[in-house]
Design a binder for these strands. Structure first.
Length: 835
DNA sequence: GCAAGGTC
């Protein structure tokens, strides 16, 4: 370490030390002051929680007078400028550009004053914040406050991972500089979370709250329908499982069971085949067994089995187990853990625990923590397990028996058990006649609703929230009336929660899935590693989310439709008008039976839909920026079959780019470039699976709200959304890949038809950037493919709008990427995957 | 009245 500019020689310098929480300030001061002359003194700061410890210490031969205080987590918060704070102060869209500022909230002002006062009298500052990204960000918050009070501070960062003597002494002798990149990554997260959260929350609250009778809320005028990048995916997990259960169709299966009794006892033998769904097949085998029922022992295996104690308790594991064993909510568990920590019984509950108090306490969480610790350091339980296999008429059956030899850790860990079962002794080749041989039937059952432990597991796996915040997100679902928890701590969505997820799902968005958060996490990592710049990530992400927001707003009809399934319309809003039957635009090319007419939806968006609805769901959605539309008497000379009447459009000036005219006479038959471009820029009134401008493939009913229930389950096919098979086995896959192949050939043969390709990509995308990159311009965007993130590199020499996909890449998209010669590179292995 | 992240 360089010698401090204000230090030098033997003169004692004053060093301000700041920890993230009072307990760390106290613990580190205790370690550093031990065996130092003068001992340790404590005095109050302006905040009653954050004391100041004083002692002498020598850093690299420099005698120091150490002042050690703390903050309590983040010192600052990010907020919009005052003029954007009120909900009706601006269009929520502006929250993507509105100025934001960091400020010290009222309840942290006393800590700020302490820091300012103490910093004035010091030459050095050592930042002892936790060594993670949030800690680094807090370090810069502390620094900002202290530097304003004293410009000449010499700044150092202590890196430590445990509050043990050796590590603390070593870290203070090898001080480093704070890491700006780590802090930048947190700045990015904060700003994105704030802008997305506030814009979508205001949007959906103001859109839906007054439009429907939300009977569950006592005061629905003050209800907030919040959206957040963590709370919504958490809700998504709950809804997805709920839909999976709804979609489950019980299926009868058949199994053969065999029992054997003799002097030593009895045994139940299970059929090696498990069960069969084919009754005829099961009956045939059963009859074979009945005719030759003599059982011959074909295998006897004896082995020692160990049951291992649990791993040390992490915060999430503590929450899961308390929920499983005691049915305590994760929020309640964290409250108790916090209390135990405050009273000195357990170590800090929000980070991994590596020390345990010897004191005892009757509180259940404490008992769990202690017993868990004791189990961790105990020996595994030991059992002797016997497996016997028998043969009856060529069919195999097996039975297992277990004797517990030593309970070991199970003695102390009373929350777990290991059942034993005794079976008689069998020898190889032994024969016997079973006591019973039965053909039994059963039905498949759906998975259970998600338990709190399941939900925590899903969040943990998907990286939603941190160990300190997961329980908050779960509680938020309950507080917002998005989900309920039943008496067995299992979660199901409320009508509101289901409607919101359904609405976004019908738009084709996966805003309720964890991919967005995963992508943000990926970007944050890139910022903290220095491979991407903070401004670049912020700009890209917010631009994409703004486009997504615009698109969601243009498709708000889908949210309306989903809400209307569950709730009565309210007379408080003006959105309840009936749809008017409009003028005929053309004959429907899908059902060939009805006319397509121009209509304005209750939410204001325009569409050209088939009068054969609901039997025929052919629809063409028009740009979201339309204020008026009327069918003219002019017909298009290039589109067909049959007459296609042109439409007079009037667009909202502020919602279209300046180089487009607000008045336009256009055609929906597919020839109109201007209309197509405006759809690309402004989005449409819907993103239903029906095609835009009547092109491309479309399963006209795939995402219809009316089909809900059976089509959304996790177990349903990702391609056709039908149940009964997964995407791997999709019967439509064969024809689908043929389509993809022929399309590939078509496209390769005639890349002049690029417009349809652009539309094709758009239709599949979750949200489209409104800005078209210039031809050949370098750009990049990400694609989440299963668990891997792909990035599209150079935009090829065609005009195609950049996309951001928040879901796995479909086969057709891979073809599109291939045809466009877009390299798809795996972020994880850096290999090109579509060569 | 919005987010998520610290911690009291």
């Amino acid at each position: 370490m360089a010698s401090g500019g204000n230090g030098g020689g033997g003169r004692v310098i004053r060093v301000l030390n700041v920890a993230e929480k009072p307990s760390v300030a106290k613990a580190v001061s205790g370690i550093l002051s031990r065996n130092q002359g003068g001992g340790m003194r404590v005095r109050d700061g302006r905040s009653r929680y954050n004391k100041i410890f004083e002692f002498n210490y020598t850093i690299r031969n420099q005698p120091c007078q150490m002042l050690f205080t703390s903050v309590t987590g983040h010192l600052m918060e990010l907020e919009f400028d005052d003029r954007f704070r009120k909900w009706h102060s601006c269009d929520p869209l502006h929250l993507y550009d509105a100025p934001v500022r960091k400020y010290v909230p009222q309840d942290k002002l006393d800590i700020k004053r302490t820091l300012e006062e103490e910093a004035r009298g010091c030459q050095w500052i050592i930042l002892w914040l936790d060594c993670d990204r949030e800690g680094e960000n807090i370090a810069f918050e502390v620094l900002e406050v202290c530097r304003q009070a004293n410009h000449n501070l010499n700044v150092w960062r202590a890196r430590f991972s445990a509050l043990i003597d050796r590590e603390i002494h070593q870290s203070v002798q090898t001080l480093v500089q704070p890491n700006q990149l780590f802090s930048d990554a947190v700045d990015v997260r904060q700003e994105i979370d704030l802008r997305i959260g506030a814009s979508f929350t205001r949007f959906q609250t103001m859109l839906l709250r007054d439009a429907f009778v939300l009977d569950f809320a006592t005061d629905d005028r003050n209800l907030v329908l919040s959206y957040g990048p963590c709370q919504f995916p958490t809700l998504g997990f709950v809804v997805e499982r709920y839909w999976e259960i709804q979609a489950h169709e019980p299926e009868e299966f058949w199994t053969i069971n065999c029992t054997h009794n003799f002097d030593e006892g009895s045994a139940t033998f299970n059929w090696m085949r498990g069960h069969l769904f084919d009754y005829t097949c099961a009956v045939t085998i059963y009859e074979m067994c009945i005719q030759e029922p003599t059982a011959t022992v074909s295998k006897v295996k004896q082995q020692e089995k160990l049951k291992y104690p649990p791993h040390p308790l992490s915060t999430i594991e503590l929450e899961k187990r308390a929920s499983r064993y005691f049915r305590m909510s994760s929020e309640q568990t964290m409250k108790v853990a916090e209390d135990l920590y405050q009273n000195g019984f357990i170590s800090y509950p929000r980070t991994e625990t590596d020390c345990f108090s010897e004191k005892t306490d009757l509180r259940r969480v404490y008992e769990l923590v202690v017993r868990h610790f004791l189990a961790c350091v105990s020996k595994p339980a030991v059992g002797a397990e016997t497996t016997v296999e028998i043969d009856i008429a060529g069919e195999s059956f097996f039975a297992c028996g277990r004797v517990i030899l030593a309970k070991n850790y199970l003695d102390v860990y009373r929350f777990e058990s290991w059942g034993g079962s005794v079976i008689p002794t069998y020898t190889f080749g032994q024969q016997f006649i079973p006591r019973s041989l039965t053909l039994d039937s059963g039905v498949t059952r759906p998975p259970p609703l998600l338990s709190e432990a399941d939900l925590l597991g899903c969040m943990d796996k998907a990286g939603i929230g941190t160990d300190a915040t997961m329980h908050d997100h779960i509680k938020k679902l309950l507080d917002r009336f998005y989900a309920i928890k039943d008496s067995s701590t299992r979660f199901s969505p409320t009508k509101l929660g289901e409607a919101l997820v359904m609405g976004y799902d019908d738009m084709g968005y996966e805003l309720w899935k964890p991919y967005l958060r995963a992508m943000m996490e990926c970007d944050m990592k890139a910022v903290s590693m220095g491979t991407k710049r903070k401004t670049e990530v912020l700009e890209t992400c917010l631009q994409q989310m703004k486009a997504c927001f615009l698109d969601a707003r243009a498709n708000k009809g889908k949210l309306f439709e989903a809400m209307a399934i569950f709730f009565e319309r309210s007379n408080r809003s003006s959105g309840g008008e009936q749809q008017v039957v409009g003028d005929v635009v053309r004959r429907c090319g899908l059902c060939l039976e009805s006319d397509m007419v121009l209509r304005q939806k209750p939410d204001g968006n325009f569409m050209v839909g088939c009068l054969g609805y609901p039997q025929c769901r052919n629809v063409v959605w028009l740009p979201g920026s339309l204020s008026e539309a009327s069918v003219t008497e002019n017909t298009c000379t290039s589109c067909g079959p049959g007459l296609v009447y042109k439409i007079q459009f009037r667009f909202r000036r502020l919602e279209i780019p300046p180089n487009y005219s607000a008045q336009h006479i256009g055609c929906i038959g597919g020839c109109d470039d201007i209309l197509r471009q405006l759809v690309g820029i402004c989005g449409t009134g819907s993103r239903s699976s029906s095609n835009t401008f009547g092109r491309g493939r479309g399963n006209p009913t795939a995402s219809s709200s009316a089909q809900r229930g059976n089509s959304r389950a996790q177990g349903s096919c990702a391609y056709c959304r039908q149940t009964g098979h997964l995407s791997n086995d999709c019967p439509s896959q064969a024809s689908r890949s043929c389509t993809a192949r022929s399309q590939e050939v078509d496209l390769q043969n005639g890349l002049e038809n690029l417009q349809s390709l652009v539309i094709h990509v758009e239709r599949l995308a979750i949200c489209a950037l409104p800005i078209l990159p210039a031809t050949g311009e370098e750009s990049s965007f990400h694609v989440n493919h299963g668990s891997a993130i792909f990035s599209f590199g150079k935009i090829p020499s065609v005009e195609v709008s950049a996309q951001i996909l928040l879901r796995p890449l479909a086969a057709e998209e891979v073809v599109v990427a291939k045809v466009l010669q877009i390299p798809v590179v795996c972020h994880l292995c850096q290999q090109q995957v579509n060569q």
